[in-house]
Amino acid sequence: MHLKKLTVVALSACFGLSACQKEEAPPAAPPASEAPAPARAESAPQQPVESMPPATATAPGSGSNLIREPVAAQEQPLQAIQTKMGPKESVIHLTSAKVTGQILTVEFVAVPKKRGDGRYEWLNLTLPLKNVSYIDDATAKKVSLLQDDGEAYMASPLNGTGKSIRLDGHSPITATLKFPAPPETSPTISVNFSDIGSFDGVPVSR
Rank of each mutant, 00 (worst) to 15 (best):
S144M: 13
R119D: 13
T95A: 00
I92S: 00
G63C: 01
Q47L: 15
R40K: 12
I92D: 00
P31M: 08
A13F: 03
K113N: 07
P48K: 04
A72C: 06
G197E: 08
S12G: 15
A25S: 07
R115Y: 03
L6F: 02
A181L: 09
I196Y: 00
L129W: 01
V9K: 13
C20R: 05
Q76G: 02
R166N: 09
A55N: 02
L145T: 08
D200G: 01
P183I: 10
A41D: 06
A35H: 03
A59K: 11
A175Y: 08
D117A: 14
A19T: 10
T58I: 15
A80D: 04
P60W: 05
L123N: 02
L3M: 10
V99G: 01
P38A: 11
E24Y: 04
E151A: 11
A37I: 12
T161E: 15
L66Q: 14
S51L: 13
V99W: 06
D200E: 11
P77S: 02
T161Y: 15
P48F: 01
Q79L: 10
V71L: 12
A140E: 10
E89I: 08
K5R: 06
P70K: 07
P183S: 15
A39D: 02
I196V: 08
V8I: 12
F199K: 10
L94P: 03
I81Q: 05
P31K: 11
A29D: 01
S144Q: 12
N124E: 14
P112G: 09
L145F: 05
I165Q: 13
V204T: 06
